[in-house]
């Protein structure tokens, strides 16, 4: 499929998904209380920035996955006091 065909196929899907996100964010703000300082709200804002960014190598999905991931520390064995078996 060329990019036009993919766009034809995805346009309404993307439109619907963006609307879902917009409505959910509205719902959060309409509700009682304030979550503007919540780290999860910052994650959502960063993820939206990734979606809006252009890429020579399109890896938005991978970047968003990493954004929502706990960090990996190569030295994790030290924290557990586990010796490497090799």
């Amino acid at each position: 499929m060329n990019s036009n065909q993919v766009l034809d196929r995805e346009f309404l899907e993307i439109r619907a998904k963006i609307l879902e996100v917009a409505a959910a964010l509205d719902r959060i703000e309409r509700a009682e209380g304030d979550v503007s300082g919540e780290p999860r709200m910052a994650l959502i804002a960063d993820a939206i920035k990734i979606i809006a960014s252009g890429h020579a190598d399109p890896i938005r999905a991978e970047k968003i996955q990493l954004l929502f991931s706990r960090t990996y520390d190569e030295q994790w064995r030290n924290e557990f006091s586990i010796a490497s078996r090799s």
Partner: peptide, 14 residues
């Protein structure tokens, strides 16, 4: 979810 990346890398290490 958020544990997948860290856990997968730990598994590959082991």
């Amino acid at each position: 979810l958020e544990d997948k990346y860290q856990g997968t890398r730990m598994i590959l290490d082991m």
